[in-house]
Design a protein around this nucleic acid. Structure first.
Lengths: 356, 356
DNA sequence: CTGAAAGCGCTTACAG
DNA sequence: CTGAAAGCGCTTACAG
């Protein structure tokens, strides 16, 4: 039923080895005529090599794992940012003749399991916290290449590829400072001393330091980075921080939730409070007002990640230097100069909203 | 280096077969003590079976392909709707011990190629047009189960799982008719006589028929279902259809673009034009005004798809009856009664919008 | 309840 | 430039 190497070899009157060489593009070892004849037969018979057999014999699968966090009973929570990454990663792998195994990871041991089970040549870790990386890579075999997206971990088993989070936050804070804001809230999920959010925290504070100002610690913490928690934060923001005139949120989706929460509570963005995000999701242009944010080059991030991973795999070398990609500010309508006074009664001293 | 079945067998003093039976849960054939001893050794040694070897020997991979359209040089275009589906599919497969190969399909032949190469047990086709399904499944081998999401194709090789698109559009049109609208535009990508959009077209017209009204054919066609094309449509909508008071768009993302285009052109939604979408994306609650839309149960759609696919695989039967899932209307702020007169000057005869 | 043998479809040295 | 043989790590009948 299935067409095999042997079938092709028999029909072509050559050995399996020769067919194998042709199929795998090792043409130096075969005469041109033989190559052509074999290729014709392959096409005619619709021969497709068995990836399992190849993996088994060659100890390499040409398959890469894309590992993402998954609570045990939950669906994969793929953020809009990570969807874009995923799509690009698949494309880059496909272009290079690799396949992609998508796998949700509920427990650390599952990383090693996936790696071993399918003899994966490598894996991309997407969406994990740096704090968890060591535990996750614990059982990884020596010869698989691991790459973590958005990681600042110094874990020697993984390479990191990320945007310049420090500079992004610096640009964000600078923008708000330039507009005249002084009381700026840093809205973020809980963060430790390592990782993306901490970098943004550092960059944010650095902007104050530059200008000689002191940043009064105004952290607003959300449990998770979602629209819902952002909205909730928006509701209580000016109650808890009545002096605030601006918010920098570490993600667009969070910023958008905050804008809605503020709006619910009768505040206007940006005239009462400026809001600035991070990611430049498509979504940030769909909301009202359009979100000022920090843009990362997501396709480039994914492309570089794949290229580095494949380089490591194919040359059997493990580059450990991380890569950091540029970011820039995109100014839209959610930030403006601060007002002197503020009132929760939007009807009072009414300011003409931008035509929506 | 790698721990194999044989290693475990040797250490346990039994045959490979016995270990294989234990690992695969065929416990009826092994004594309890042996089972326990083997399981202990497996855990100690960190034995993970080789999926390639198993696939090769068993002619079944326990791997399912998730096949999505991909232009050759493009990244996977995964719509928000399909992201949700993807996450759920991965979860359901994982729960059942299957793995997921994610693959972009640029040419029809790649479907058969992916299927054969990895000896996939089955595949889910996500995001393809019904028109293309026959061509895509052409080279599919007999024993793989194929399932198409959102398909009305009668292709005998595939099962379809979809939402009740006809009823969804019916509910949408009824809602607008009930509000008093008569001049309603049907905004959609180009569609043929089969498939999701056509179903919605039929349901839409059926609502008019119910009430004894005639629907004057007011089709507004967009090239693709995206925010950008929607916005563009919004710009020209009332120029091309000055009598229109409402729009039903076949997707939320399109509806949201249309709202923005209308707004750009100085029209107010819903007081000038009501807009109604389809999908109930998270996004539909983030925009202003919040979008009235038709909700589908996406997790259920994915879960049922996987369950049916696995049932077909494990029982070696090919159910061909398609499944249709319920939908319902979610009324938010983008629809309201039509106005008698209309003017591009939103300030004119102002109607109080629903509190957002 | 347990085992020995054949075979799944390839690739990898090693020869010539 | 081409080939014969061994082996990758499993499962599948078939025996006992």
């Amino acid at each position: 039923m299935r067409v095999t190497l042997k079938d092709i070899a028999d029909e072509a009157g050559v050995s399996m080895m020769t067919v194998s060489n042709v199929v795998n593009g090792k043409r130096a070892r075969v005469s041109p005529e033989t190559i052509e004849r074999i290729q014709r037969i392959v096409a005619e018979r619709g021969y497709v090599p068995s990836a399992s057999a190849r993996s088994l014999a060659a100890r390499s699968s040409r398959m890469i794992g894309l590992l993402v966090p998954a609570a045990d009973e939950d669906s994969l929570m793929i953020s809009p940012h990570n969807v874009a990454i995923l799509g690009q990663i698949e494309r880059e792998l496909r272009k290079s003749g690799y396949h992609l195994l998508l796998r949700g990871i509920a427990e650390p041991s599952e990383v090693a399991e996936a790696l071993k089970s399918w003899s994966l040549d490598g894996a991309v870790l997407l969406g994990f916290l740096d704090e968890d990386l060591d535990r996750l890579t614990a059982g990884a075999v020596g010869n698989v290449s691991l790459l973590a997206i958005d990681s600042y971990s110094t874990n020697p088993l993984t390479t990191g590829v990320r945007s310049d989070d420090y500079t992004g936050a610096l640009l964000a804070a600078r923008h708000l400072l330039d507009l005249g804001h002084r009381e700026i809230i840093f809205a973020a999920p809980p963060f430790s001393s390592v990782g993306v959010v901490h970098q943004r925290y550092d960059g944010f504070r650095a902007a104050f330091a530059e200008t000689g100002l002191m940043w009064t610690e105004r952290l607003a913490t959300v449990e998770t980075t979602t629209h819902a928690t952002g909205r909730e934060l928006g509701h209580r923001l000016l109650t808890e921080h009545p002096e605030a005139t601006a918010v920098f949120a570490t993600a667009d989706i969070l910023a958008i939730g905050i804008m809605e929460g503020l709006s619910d509570s009768g505040y206007d963005v940006p005239s009462d409070v400026s809001v600035l995000g991070f990611d430049n999701l498509d979504l940030s242009e769909y909301v009202t007002p359009k979100l000022t944010t920090i843009a990362q080059d997501i396709p480039q991030k994914a492309a570089i990640a794949v290229r580095r991973l494949l380089a490591a795999i194919e040359q059997r070398e493990h580059p450990t230097e991380a890569v950091t990609l540029d970011v820039h500010l995109i100014e839209r309508a959610s930030t403006s100069h601060p007002r002197g006074a503020r009132t929760a009664d939007t009807g009072a001293d009414w300011i003409s909203p931008k035509p929506s």
